[in-house]
């Protein structure tokens, strides 16, 4: 049904931002993780977003509505941070430890963005709802 199309799209936005928060949480929780399953320090994770065309959309509109979706979760390939800490169990011969490439400032900024985008999607949905409710009052 027509009016619910925008709900569907907004939901995809909510879903994507929630997943983004999962990734940010993972990055923050592992800021100091020096050992992972494959032996390296923790690598920062990022989500890659893609757009998904909505099916059976009325082609009369000449515009293609697209919902957000998660394409992939990739690892940030930037170098690890080298910190001098000879007492650390994972320090090399020179006393350096490789720490995860997670930048707290970047994560906090992303978190803020995720939150705001989530809120924007909720607002969009609420507006659509209000419009539909208003339409019910026509001719009363």
């Amino acid at each position: 049904m027509g009016i619910f199309r925008s709900f569907e799209i907004s939901t995809s936005g909510l879903h994507v931002q929630r997943k983004r928060m999962d990734v940010i949480s993972s990055n923050l929780a592992n800021m100091e993780t020096t050992r992972t399953e494959n032996g390296t320090p923790y690598r920062r994770k990022m989500i890659v977003l893609g757009a998904e065309s909505m099916e059976n959309f009325d082609s009369l509109f000449h515009l293609k509505l697209q919902a957000a979706k998660i394409e992939n979760v990739v690892e940030d390939q930037s170098p690890f941070v080298r910190v001098h800490d000879p007492g650390h169990p994972d320090a090399d011969e020179d006393g350096y430890v490789l720490k995860p490439n997670v930048d707290l400032v970047v994560e906090m900024t992303n978190m803020l963005m995720a939150r705001r985008v989530f809120e924007a999607n909720v607002t969009a949905m609420e507006t659509t709802r209000q419009m539909a409710l208003k339409a019910l009052e026509i001719g009363r």
Partner: peptide, 15 residues
């Protein structure tokens, strides 16, 4: 998210 959307959607149908 999906459930909340459906809740709103259903509310509109009912109304």
């Amino acid at each position: 998210d999906r459930e909340m959307t459906k809740l709103v959607e259903n509310d509109l149908i009912y109304r």
